[in-house]
Amino acid sequence: MIFAIIGIAIGIVVGLYLPITYSTNYSLYMSVAILACMDSVFGGVRASLENKFNTSIFISGFFGNAILAAFLAYIGDRLGVPLYYAAIFAFGSRLFQNFAIIRRFIFNKNDAT
């Protein structure tokens, strides 16, 4: 948990200062990809709390989900159907689920000690 928060903080600071920019046209794809990444991170944190953490699954999920979500958004744009909703619903609901499980883990641990 703490490592994840530290990592995100470092990343945001570095990202804000790095001179990387891209066309605003790709903003939507990036947002969906970020949602997928967030889901993977929560999943990873939960797995590590459950002691079921698998490195390859975590990393492949992180990049694979992001690419798939961005691709889905792109295809939706081409077809004129907002397909990125699918990614938002899937990752959004999983995000909350994972967060709920993480909360339970933390509070149960506190109760036990």
């Binding site: 990343g11 945001i12 990202g15 920019t21 903003s27 990444c37 975590f58 990393i59």
Partner: peptide, 19 residues
């Protein structure tokens, strides 16, 4: 691993926020 991946995630997030 989580730290590294979260750093990457935060990087993308930061760029997007700036953008």
């Amino acid at each position: 691993y989580i730290l590294i991946i979260c750093t990457v995630f935060g990087l993308v997030l930061g760029v997007q926020i700036k953008q």
